[in-house]
Design a protein around this nucleic acid. Structure first.
Lengths: 238, 238
DNA sequence: ATCACCTTGATTGTCGACAATCTGCCGCGA
DNA sequence: TCGCGGCAGATTGTCGACAATCAAGGTGAT
């Protein structure tokens, strides 16, 4: 059911660099807001600047990096508004995904959904927050994949790394407990049920709860960098 | 009210190449499905391959180009399914945009909306289909800009060139008459009104009508290239 | 005739060096 | 002390040449 999971050594240099860079960002090997340079990265990754620059363009387009010409390359950081936007757009898209997917569900697909849920529970019980986050996103990916709506899937895949990045950041900063087991149990039950409207209402609730639980934490410490002006400017750390 | 419209000579070579390439595609100077090569483009655009390749990456990410390594670079083409997906996603996003924008409307914004509508009417009356298409998309952009939802705006700006490209293609292929004046008159009236639910219902109708009017044309001639397999493969024209 | 293999040409992928541009700092004058 | 011009360093932007890779067509054996 997996769609050819990416081999570590597969593809062109650019593809490898994209994956390694994304992993470095998501795993926290480079800090949020950190300033990077092309030459440093080229050395650290053992690759020339040409494929590196193309990989950087890809990650800039994905929203994980912010390029400020002649000044530096920055790992994106999140404001409270970024987070709210991420969740509100997710809500709209996921409700649409369920509408599109609803009549395409079959026994195999429901078994797949259940397997993803089991994986999430296992990762949570094992106390592996990183894995749990990936499992949670994989669970939410199910409805998009089932929708067979390639544009919708593209948009979700554009959003997903940003969401994963934020959840990872948040986890490391606040030792956020994993989502309640019940939350996704109910989610899965609705997804396997017969009431589309109930599912959609639940997506609203599910997302609102997730956002509120998250905002409760950063409410104490306020937005991470004090907000980023419209220009995309960010404080420089040399 | 404009946000720094791009100068013809502004920005780095890559930015210039992105704009010129996009213009070439949207204006039909390169055919849909046409096969391109980096060296040809580098010569025609008078620029090296390095900035060209980065520009190409950007347009691939935007969905206007399809890169098939070692085989060629292709201008995207649209299947009937692509078109349906474009319209269904647009519908969902635009309804969300109006929800977000609804309480942000003010006198100046409504005047702006009216101005965009006037521009559309003028372009239609002047018999300039290309300009009319741009005006129509500018009119629909209003609700996104008003939403102040930067993620939503990003997604719309990702979709917009694809939509413009298809409308241009369709216009050239079928001499499609511009949208009925009444259609957007009603749209604008609802957008300036007080009933959000009525606006959302109208967005549904407006999009469905637009899609059906378009499908009526290609229904005669069937999908343009006979459908593109999941691999993104496309017939080669040498 | 058909299939497998290899050669050939074309195309993309990569590298290293150089040019253009910007930021921050230093010194100078008021 | 403060403001300003310019210098130095760093960083990105660009170019040309070379290497890796692949698709197509031809060739020979079966």
């Amino acid at each position: 059911m997996h769609a050819a999971l990416p081999q570590e050594t597969a593809g062109s240099g650019r593809d490898r660099v994209v994956r390694r860079l994304r992993d470095m960002i998501l795993s926290g090997h480079v800090e949020a807001g950190e300033r990077l340079t092309e030459m440093d990265l080229a050395e650290r990754l053992g690759v020339g600047r040409a494929p590196l620059r193309e990989a950087i363009r890809e990650l800039v387009a994905a929203g994980l990096l912010i390029s400020v010409p002649y000044s530096g390359l920055f790992v994106r950081d999140f404001t409270r508004k970024d987070l709210e936007e991420l969740f509100s757009l997710r809500t709209t898209l996921e409700k649409m995904a369920f509408r599109e997917a609803w009549n395409r569900r079959n026994a195999a697909a429901l078994a797949d959904l259940d397997a993803r849920h089991e994986a999430l529970v296992a990762a949570t019980d094992a106390g592996d927050p990183g894995e749990a986050i990936e499992c949670e996103l994989s669970l939410h990916s199910w409805c998009y994949e089932m929708s067979a709506h390639s544009l919708l899937i593209e948009v979700w895949q554009r959003l997903r790394p940003n969401l994963q990045f934020y959840l990872m950041l948040h986890q490391r900063a606040h030792a956020r407990p994993g989502p309640r087991r019940d939350a996704h149990r109910v989610y899965v039950a609705h997804a396997m049920g017969d009431d589309l409207q109930a599912m959609q209402d639940h997506v609203d609730d599910h997302m609102r709860q997730g956002l509120e639980r998250t905002l409760a934490y950063i409410g104490e410490a306020e937005p991470r960098t004090g907000g980023r002006p419209d220009t995309g400017k960010i404080e420089l750390k040399r």
